[in-house]
Write a protein that binds this DNA or RNA. Structure first.
Length: 426
DNA sequence: GAACGTAGTTAGGGACCCGT
DNA sequence: ACGGGTCCCTAACTACGTTC
């Protein structure tokens, strides 16, 4: 009769800073309250009434449809990335927590809140929510568990922990509760996210397979922004498979879409992707034009994208042999990092290592690699990037005439690249 | 069919265990 | 030491069978 009330009692007891002993006093024993809270005992209505009175809440369940509607609308807004509307909904939902617990939506709301914090860049809140949810994994039902895997995956990805993100998202796909969803939006969102993470891990084959599924769906359902983002990913995979013309074609499609829907982020990413292609082909002047346009579009937003644009310029000039210009942009990057905005650790490390590349190596470089960059990449299991920096370190040792150490680093790098290939072909 | 016996179930409590 | 959870026990109640 009072099934499910335990969760509500526990929530409001903790909220009012009471222990089980305080709440149970003169009503039931502590151990019995513990059972009630865990829904292991179906308590006498009189007992429940007394407990609820002490907590100042209503013992009866609200059979209100409107909150269910409200909450599911919020879930959809998050899925569609409608952040402004999601923000408004969140304010409303937060105020109605009592009804949410009653409606059995408690965990689903908590799980989506994790994703909401990730989407809105509130890293600390997201971390706290992640740790909080992690303690209750065993209480999740099938659907809640699916969302746990998906959202913790996206949480990892947001922290640049792509390897963990990949593992989590793949597990989510395996246990995707098909019967629960009427349309195919959810599964294709998952495919899209897997593709994005795979791209960051250089799992080109995986990225290609998943993004094609997502793109087909987004095309058929006219989700233009996602189409654009998908074309960029397809292009990046094509570039990595040396299909340069195909890559450029997809990037151009993304650009067209970005103009149609007036999406700045997409337009910025297009220019950067084009810059990357031309830099790969050693056409540095063309690359610089695209990176400059990217920089103009992002300038003074103090964002990750701005820093990426600057580093694109730095790399291109360095590759071109124009060390003065490269040093200038490296300096700009260093100043941007010092604004205090939180940039990805990886990008900050790259800026630091470019400083040494451009101004000459010294012990500082060795220390940066051995103490910071390499352990960081190893821990985050970013194999591909790790291999890149291992090679860079190997080069450094080679120039220092420390051939034995250098050879070891080269060997380690090659071994890692094999790991990436094996995982990607799995 | 009333009285009694017995086995099973459930609300509830006390002692103890475990992690912090 | 403290808060919370678990194990095991008891009391009360129920369902069912047996006896007179």
């Amino acid at each position: 009769m009072n099934k499910g009330i335990g969760r509500k009692i526990k929530y409001f007891r903790i909220k009012s800073d009471m222990t089980q002993e305080e709440l149970a006093k003169d009503i039931v024993s502590v151990s019995y309250l513990s059972k009630i809270e865990r829904n292991a005992a179906d308590a006498n209505p009189q007992v429940v009434k007394q407990i609820c009175e002490r907590l100042g809440i209503k013992p009866e369940r609200t059979q209100d449809n409107h909150i269910q509607k409200e909450v599911h609308q919020w879930f959809n807004q998050l899925l569609n990335g409608e952040l402004i509307r999601a923000y408004e909904s969140y304010q409303m939902i937060e105020a109605e927590i009592e009804s949410i617990i009653d409606a059995g939506l408690y965990w689903l709301v908590e799980l989506h809140t994790l994703y909401y914090f990730v989407l809105t860049d509130r890293e600390e809140l997201a971390e706290r929510k992640y740790i909080f949810l992690q303690q209750d994994i065993d209480k999740f039902n099938e659907i809640e568990h699916y969302y746990w895997l998906k959202f913790s995956g996206l949480y990892f990805a947001d922290r640049y922990e792509y390897y963990d993100a990949f593992q989590s998202l793949m597990r989510a796909e395996k246990m995707y509760p098909k019967e629960h969803f009427q349309d195919e939006l959810e599964i294709h969102d998952l495919y899209f996210q897997i593709a994005k993470v795979s791209t960051n891990l250089y799992y080109t084959y995986h990225a290609r397979v998943y993004i094609n599924r997502a793109l087909t769906f987004y095309k058929n359902t006219y989700r233009l922004r996602r189409c654009g983002e998908s074309h960029l990913i397809v292009g990046i995979t094509a570039k990595r498979m040396n299909e340069i013309n195909e890559a450029i074609e997809h990037f151009r499609l993304a650009k067209k879409l970005s103009e149609t829907i007036k999406d700045d982020h997409l337009l910025i990413d297009y220019h950067r992707a084009m810059g990357d292609v031309y830099r790969d082909m050693q056409l540095n002047d063309e690359a610089i034009e695209y990176y400059k346009r990217t920089y103009e579009l992002t300038k003074h937003h103090y964002s990750e994208r701005e820093l990426q644009a600057i580093m694109g310029l730095c790399r291109s000039y360095a590759q071109k042999g124009d060390n003065d210009s490269a040093a200038y942009w490296c300096e700009v990057a260093q100043q941007l990092i010092q604004t205090g905005e939180s940039f990805s650790q990886l990008l900050s490390y790259e800026v630091n290592s470019y400083y040494y590349i451009l101004h000459g190596f010294d012990q500082g470089f060795e220390s940066l690699m051995v103490n910071d960059v390499l352990p960081f990449l190893k821990e985050k299991q970013l194999h591909y990037t790790y291999a890149h920096y291992l090679k860079l370190t190997a080069n450094y040792y080679y120039n220092e005439r420390k051939y034995k150490v250098s050879a070891d680093y080269y060997a380690a790098a090659n071994e890692l690249l094999d790991v990436v290939r094996v995982v990607d072909n799995y």
